[in-house]
């Protein structure tokens, strides 16, 4: 009898905590708490990477410079108004789907010759050749690295990473760099 009562009490307590647990599990199943960890894992950024500038990277080829200019001043193929120069498209296939090609949107942070609504988060790149290259302050290799992965120069940089992320090809980085260091009218 005594023992029985103890048992019943135990069962009662168990039932109580069970109902609490069910209650909480129940609530957890109606409250949306989606898992974002997989998305974040896939979106991870590789560590800073040092690059060797490819041979014949910096060029005075007007088409390459035009492509670099186009990438510098536009956000993506959907927003861009003018037709891109030869060798550059507005759309690309990603996993069998047609997607707007992403460009550099460097103008969001940098002023430069002919910039419309240029930002000032980064330094003004106007007269870059005259002030930085001709004076020897910067080398072509430095500019290439800065655009490819600026974290090598400044681990806390606020600038975008453009090659390590796979957003551009080395040739495209060369086109952009060629534009930045080119003589402008």
């Amino acid at each position: 009898m005594h023992r029985n009562r103890k048992l019943m009490l135990g069962a009662g307590l168990l039932a109580f905590s069970l109902s609490e647990a069910v209650h909480s599990a129940d609530l957890k199943s109606v409250i949306e708490m989606p898992d974002a960890s997989k998305i974040l894992k896939k979106d991870r950024l590789a560590p800073p990477k040092k690059y060797t500038m490819p041979k014949e990277c910096i060029t005075t080829d007007p088409l390459a410079i035009a492509r670099g200019e186009y990438i510098f001043h536009n956000l993506n193929g959907k927003k861009a108004k003018k037709e891109p120069p030869k060798g550059l498209t507005k759309f690309v296939m990603v996993n069998g789907k047609k997607k707007p090609k992403q460009y550099g949107n460097c103008v969001a942070c940098h002023n430069i010759e002919g910039a419309k609504g240029g930002g000032n988060v980064g330094p003004d790149l106007t007269h870059y050749k005259q002030y930085f290259i001709d004076t020897g302050v910067r080398s072509y290799a430095y500019v290439y690295q800065q655009i490819a992965d600026p974290r090598v120069h400044n681990p806390n940089t606020h600038m975008t990473v453009n090659l390590t992320t796979g957003l551009f090809t080395p040739r495209e980085i060369c086109d952009i760099a060629s534009y930045v260091v080119s003589e402008k009218k």
């Binding site: 950024l45 930002g119 988060v121 992965d149 975008t160 990473v161 992320t165 957003l167």
Partner: peptide
């Protein structure tokens, strides 16, 4: 603070004390 994504940016890239008030494309 964590940089991620196709441009390697974090929230902090655009909202840190150092850049507040600066202009990002107008």
């Amino acid at each position: 603070m964590t940089k991620r994504g196709k441009r390697g940016l974090s929230c902090n890239s655009c909202h840190s004390k150092e850049v507040v008030g600066l202009i990002l494309r107008t």
